[in-house]
């Protein structure tokens, strides 16, 4: 069998799923040799339909957003709708010249990157500790991490703002990133801990035997295997920071993030402005995801290109 030979070179975290899918396909192959093809065809169509629905689920709203943001206001409120917009860039142009959008975009990116860095620098070691060591109070620690998500932001923002003003990090991107990192940390810790659990400790032990110290073994063996997962939790942190509105709106005055800057006003603006603003909020996050897609894909066992 082909699968057994490929399993040997594959890291074990990925191998179980990969071998399962290979086994699937080989059993399918075996089936097609004996049974009539109709059943097989039906499954294939079901699979295709399912995939199409999932893909459309994601793409249709984005497509609508794009179409409507280059339509004229008359087209948006008018009926029947067309799929060929008039290509009017008036509303998008309005945003480009809207005072403060550019600096808010910069603030948003900066806050998201800081959040990402803080969440990973603090979250990955915590995840490693949870995965590799047994220590007293471990379960309580796990609970406490999740507990930090139990308080709604509107409740936290006011006391936080008071403290931030006293400490002097009010209205700063770094201060905001610290709040966002608090929101992102539970996910970072939990994702990385399950990630490190999936990497056999024997691999590390083998590295120690070959003369690595703890840090070297981590850096050369564990980290490359964990990189995709760490990236995924970093993306999560990025998206959490990017989408967060309430804390940003209260903790900053001059240095607003894009979401805090736009979302509040958008909900009360005419439809064409809503569409264009929505597009502007979505596109940077999409571009970011696109740029790091190969790390994400390799985590799911899809070959990276």
């Amino acid at each position: 069998m082909k699968s057994s030979s490929s399993e040997a070179v594959m890291p074990s975290s990925l191998s179980s799923r990969a071998s399962a899918s290979l086994a699937d396909s080989s059993s399918q192959l075996a089936q097609t040799a004996h049974k009539p093809r109709r059943n097989d065809m039906a499954w294939r169509w079901l699979f295709r339909a399912g995939v199409s629905i999932l893909v459309l689920w994601v793409l249709v709203p984005i497509a609508l957003l794009m179409l409507n943001s280059v339509s004229t206001p008359e087209q948006i409120t008018g009926w029947p709708k067309t799929l060929t917009p008039a290509l009017s860039f008036e509303t998008l142009d309005f945003f480009w010249h809207y005072q403060g959008v550019i600096s808010a975009l910069g603030n948003s990116l900066l806050a998201a990157v800081f959040t990402m860095v803080i969440a990973i620098v603090l979250g990955a070691p915590a995840g490693y500790a949870l995965a590799r060591f047994v220590f007293p109070g471990m379960n309580a620690y796990r609970m406490i991490i999740i507990l930090s998500r139990a308080f709604p932001m509107p409740l936290l923002a006011l006391p936080l703002a008071v403290i931030f003003i006293q400490v002097g990090i009010d209205d700063s991107i770094l201060g905001l990133a610290m709040v966002h990192a608090t929101l992102a940390l539970p996910f970072a810790v939990l994702i990385t801990s399950s990630l490190f659990m999936g990497i056999p400790v024997e691999l590390e032990e083998a590295a120690w035997l070959m003369g690595c110290n703890r840090w070297q073994a981590f850096r050369r063996v564990v980290l490359p295997l964990a990189a995709p997962g760490i990236t995924a939790s970093a993306v999560f942190a990025f998206v959490i920071s990017w989408n967060e509105v309430f804390a940003s709106a209260i903790l900053t005055v001059e240095n607003r993030t894009l979401t805090a800057f736009l979302v509040q006003s958008l909900s009360e603006s005419p439809a064409e402005i809503k569409y264009a603003g929505g597009l502007i909020l979505v596109v940077p996050a999409l571009l970011f995801l696109f740029a790091i897609r190969k790390y994400l894909f390799s985590m799911w066992g899809i070959s990276n290109r």
């Binding site: 600096s103 808010a104 975009l105 910069g106 603030n107 990116l109 900066l110 001059e254």
Partner: peptide
């Protein structure tokens, strides 16, 4: 990014 973040001008009256 750091450069971008600091270019937002401080207005006199908020």
């Amino acid at each position: 990014l750091a450069l971008l973040g600091t270019t937002s001008a401080l207005a006199d009256i908020t």
